[in-house]
Design a protein around this nucleic acid. Structure first.
Lengths: 108, 108
DNA sequence: AGAAGTACCTTGCACGGCAAGGTACCGTGT
DNA sequence: ACACGGTACCTTGCCGTGCAAGGTACTTCT
């Protein structure tokens, strides 16, 4: 039960969020970074290593597409295994969130 | 608004939880570690550096107390500034949690 | 005496987020 | 024609932190 996934949650939140965004439609790193920057204050320098890692892990695949406003965009698309990862990470997150809330208790 | 605190949240969760535990009564590291290990899978090796950091930051103070079952226990006690830190970290956490939930959206 | 449990702490590793810097392409203004 | 600002890509180097593993010391139980 005390899987390493559980332990990795703190690091895994960003990955999970990116997976969640991609589950709603293909997207490219720069736009993902902008959304995440607004939402949770993620820096742009974070996204590219993250995306590469996810690609290496087989969670996403990529394709290029012209944009007409700058260099061609590299779109990322969820793979099946990415979708599975999303599902399991979300449930891990919920467990974690619950545990934290329990610890916080009436402090909140 | 995009304070570094926001960014630090992922690292700050453990600290916040420890502060929350201490807000319910003084405690010693070994016991805190046990509770946290059960709750969120924290390792024992994590707690001691963390407690020292918190002490350096003035969030906690310490006193020794004999235990009759092993070496004397080093109890930690929340300082005023620790209580303030707890309050602000909890509100940061709630913001973060909300942001994540928003991103997850109907994926959940 | 030895083992097991409590409680303290340190060291070395690995990973990931960040700031800063760098490249290249495009449209608009002068 | 040229410079500028925006879009979009990516890399490098640093630092913090969580972890596993190892180490010390005291007490109780067998």
């Amino acid at each position: 039960m005390t899987e390493s996934l559980q332990i990795q949650l703190k690091k895994g939140v960003l990955e999970m969020c990116v997976l969640a965004l991609l589950s709603k439609g293909d997207n490219y790193a720069y736009d993902i970074a902008s959304r995440m920057a607004e939402a949770v204050g993620m820096g742009e320098g974070t996204i590219y290593p993250l995306m590469r890692r996810m690609q290496n892990d087989g969670l996403v695949s990529t394709y290029l597409q012209e944009s007409g406003s700058g260099p061609p965009r590299k779109y990322y698309k969820l793979t099946k295994s990415g979708a599975n990862a999303l599902k399991s990470q979300v449930s891990e997150w919920l467990v974690f969130e619950t545990a934290v809330r329990k610890i916080l208790g009436d402090v909140t």
